[in-house]
Write a protein that binds this DNA or RNA. Structure first.
Length: 298
DNA sequence: GGAAGTCAAGTCTCG
DNA sequence: CGAGACTTGACTTCC
């Protein structure tokens, strides 16, 4: 069955944060335990809201486990909280939700600095452990940018490949690459083909750094779609628009319904999981749902 | 209580 | 050369 599913990233503006953390200087096992428990509680509430509102696509915050890939966190949190993870994961599976994560800008697998690449490997392993603790299979993805060195693509690709080779099968099996302003879709597809990774097409980043001149958005989505296989689950795409008056690349406050309608007109029949990257989060998802509902009726 | 400053990490752009 | 920006602010200090 085709059809577009729309979701959002990390934060529900009406509910408590699932990304509470503390300062490195203040880390103790007890404080970490308290925050992990609180973050899982908050995540469960957000997922409950999503379930009640028919939102099936969601991005987990990287900060669910404070210092999840840092030596300062010595907890075996995936064991200590195994029951809670199972409960929350059960909700996700019951509701047919699709989760992904998106490590931050400090996760640079292609860095020329060995310690940075090593930290990136650790971060990706943490994300895999998190999704696995929830009982989610490899269709629940970790979405990563290629990283540094777009000016010198050849060596950057080599560094990326050697970083990728250091990942566990679990983390490698979840990895997905996303085009951005430095790495347009064409070079990302070329790199992804070498390691057989799926590719997330980000419409906004594509507008800022276009490749494949002349191809319609639908064609680009289809090209990215060729990289997704059955075991990877539904193809993920990202949608956002330029914040008016802000620097190029700044994400808009809310969904631009006319641009989104144009996007939907091109891809509504494809089986896509679309993450909206807008500041008002779940509210724009409801707007998108309404828009899609009317479209179906019309 | 509220405002301002600071926080694990990288990299690039702009002023 | 420092600040700001990036998928997501949240914590701590100071008044």
């Amino acid at each position: 069955m085709g059809g577009l599913r729309v979701g959002y990233a990390c934060v529900n503006t009406q509910l408590p944060s699932s990304a509470r953390t503390l300062r490195l200087a203040n880390v103790t096992p007890e404080r970490l335990r308290k925050l992990i428990a609180a973050n899982l509680e908050a995540l469960e509430a957000i997922l409950g809201w999503n379930e009640r509102h028919g939102v099936e696509v969601f991005r987990l915050t990287s900060n669910l486990i404070p210092f999840g890939s840092h030596a300062a966190n010595e907890l075996l949190w995936w064991e200590e909280f195994a029951r809670r993870f199972e409960e929350v994961g059960g909700l996700i599976l019951r509701a047919g939700m699709r989760l992904s994560t998106h490590p931050g800008q400090c996760t640079v697998l292609s860095s020329s600095r060995p310690e940075v690449a090593a930290a990136a490997v650790a971060e990706l392993e943490y994300h895999d452990r998190l999704l696995s603790a929830l009982g989610l299979d490899r269709s629940h993805k970790i979405v990563l940018h290629v990283g540094s060195g777009a000016g010198d693509p050849k060596t950057a690709v080599d560094r990326f490949l050697s970083g990728f080779a250091r990942l566990s099968p679990g983390a490698a099996g979840r990895l997905v690459l996303e085009n951005d302003e430095r790495w347009p879709l064409a070079p990302v597809l070329a790199l992804a083909a070498r390691v057989r990774l799926p590719v997330v097409f980000d419409v906004f980043h594509h507008r800022l750094a276009a490749s494949f001149d002349g191809l319609a958005v639908r064609d680009l989505v289809l090209r990215a779609g060729d990289t997704w296989h059955r075991r990877d689950g539904r193809q993920e795409v990202h949608f956002s628009t330029q914040a008016p008056g802000k620097r190029p690349g700044a994400h808009a406050e809310t969904l631009d319904t006319s641009e989104f309608t144009r996007f939907v007109d091109e891809v509504y029949d494809l089986p896509l999981d679309c993450v909206l990257e807008v500041k008002d989060k779940e509210r724009s998802v409801l707007t998108a749902h309404e828009l899609l509902r009317r479209r179906t009726c019309a």
